[in-house]
Each structure stands twice: as structure tokens, then as C-alpha cells.
Amino acid sequence: MAQRQLMTGNEAMAEAAIRAGCRAYFGYPITPQNEILEYMASHLPQAGGAFVQAESEVAAINMCYGAAAAGVRTMTSSSSPGISLKLEGISYLAGADLPCVILNVARGGPGLGNIAPAQGDYFQATKGGGHGDYRLIVLAPSTVQEAAELATLAFDLSDEYRVPALLLADGMLGQMLEPVALPTPRDPGSLPPKPWALTGAAGRGPNYVASFALDPLDLRDLNLKRHARYREIEARELRWEEVSTSDADLLIVAYGTMGRIAKTVVRQARREGIRLGLFRPITVWPFPYAPLGELAERVKAVLTVELSAGQMWEDVRLAVEGRCPTPFYGEMGGVVPTPSDILREVKRCA
């Protein structure tokens, strides 16, 4: 690990992407993620990569589709309303089995909403979002360090499984300045080859990249193969963090920025003699249903805390399967609860 340096979450994700071998970035300005676009504009060309400020979010994701088809590690970044626009392209990426990394530095919604931190895009990120039966690998960082590490992981997983990967962050994490030890830069030439990519049909038959299969039997088979890969990801790539769960009789489930705040709540609760633990999903798709379900056997309640009206809450309830009560506390519109707000909700469960 390199020396630690102070970076915002946005900068750290951008730099980590370049170090992971990203050599094609396409984006469009939207707050609170503009620093990613700007960082790429000044740093990616120096690394020999292609940077285009696209005419729209739609164009940007389709440029990613082209670069991904050409076998180059590619990324776009945006914030909630921009991700909505990208969903068409994301569905095509998924349908064409193309690797791509998408950063969502989420903000308050729906509609134009505001630029404050929110987690209202969970359904969009984890349940498909665009049209058709597809999934994204969705990683939810809670610190700047983790944002850099998960940006790297997103490229690796996306390439390995040929499934687009999305980093679900929010405006707080994007703007936050923290020390970060950046991953070691990798030479794109050292990455595993992509024999399916569009590189020119020299010495081989043509490679075709498409999400199109007119015959229902063909399209079904393509979907079945893709879903087999989804099952593989579910079996192999679950990631989560547990804090003070070994003796906990109450559990908070929170991800991203809320997961970070919940760690403070656990410390405060413990000081007051409440045996509170935290379960923080890092992969929100695939969601760690089984490990959360096992913890639910041993606690009195599982409290979900989100910056939404209760989106991950549905997955929590699927994981808990009625083993204990599953209360919810959420704030919306960019309102971020303080640790004491959450502790109050914890005490209601105790």
C-alpha cells in the first residue's frame, strides 16, 4: 500500500479507476460528482486514456458501451437523475454482457430533488432499473478508503463476470475529505485478455457484440446463461462488514454513509450498556441474505436505517424471514440523521 494522502471520495474513486486500468471515461456534469469528470479530464489523458465530455448522460453510457465492446476498461459517473438517463444504456450493456463501471454519487430525489446525500436509488441499482431481466454488481462504500478499494474491485468483478458494476455512493461520501492509501497502478496490458472484444477480425472470424436475439429460444438461452453467472456471483462475491455482532441482541442494518454513521451509534449504545451490533452490506447486489438471516436468529430486532423511505428494508425483511421484528427508520430529501436520532430509534427496539 502506498503512502496515505488526503482525497475526496470523488477524487479517490477516479484515481482508483485509472490505477485499475480504466482507459476510457465518458461523463456529463452533474452535482455532486463533477470532481470525477474533472479529475478524469486532467488525469486520464496523461495515463494514455480517452476522455470525452459527452453531450448527454445517454451518449456517455453509450460511449462506454462502445469502449467496453472494444475491450477497454471503461467507466462513467453521474448522480441520480443522470443514472436514470443512463438506464437504457445500462440495460444494453447487461444484455450484451459487457463489463463497465458506473459510479452513482446519489442525491435527493425523485425528479430534480436536490444535491444532498440520499439512498433513494437502491431499488434502481439493485433491482434492475432499466428494462429486462438483468442485474448489476452493486458495491456500497462507506469511507473514502473503501470507495477507492471498491472502485478497483468493481473493474475486476465486472471483467470477470462480464456484468456491469455500479458503485452506489452518495454526495456525502463524494465530497468528504479523508486519508486514503491508493491501490498500486496496473498496466492495462497485464489484465486478462478479452477474446470476445472488437479488435478487428484479423486471423479470426468476426466478433459480434449485441443484446439482440430474435428467436425466443435463443434469447431465453442467453438469459439463462447470464443468470447462471448471477448465481455464481451470489455464491462467491458476497461482502459485508459486521461490527460488535458476536454478543449483540439488537442489530442495525445500514449501508454506505448510513453504515458509517451507524458505527458511531454502536459505540454510543455500547457505552450506555445496549448490546447493539451493526451489519453493513458492502455488496447490496448480491445482497448478503444468508449471513444476515443467521444473525437474526440471535437478536431481538433488526433495525434498518436508510436515507430513503425503506428500500433496502425489503431485502432485510427477505433475509430475516420473520425470525424477529424488523423495524425501520429512514430520512429522505437529503436529511441525514445524527447518531443520537438513530440511538433514539434503537432504544425503541430495546
Binding site: V58, N62, T74, L198
Partner: peptide, 26 residues
């Protein structure tokens, strides 16, 4: 008998941009 890609409706020029920027030799 060339490599080929199917683009979303209307997005071919953006897809072409992505390919060309990623591999200018094509």
C-alpha cells in the same frame, strides 16, 4: 466479415465514438 456491434436506437454515433476513442486504429 468484420467485427460488429449492435447499438441502442439512435446511439450508434456515441457507440462508434466509444470504440474509436478506445481503439483509434480501427
Amino acid at each position: 466479415r468484420c467485427d460488429g456491434v449492435q447499438a441502442a436506437h439512435g446511439r450508434a454515433a456515441a457507440v462508434a465514438t466509444g470504440i474509436k476513442r478506445a481503439r483509434p486504429d480501427l
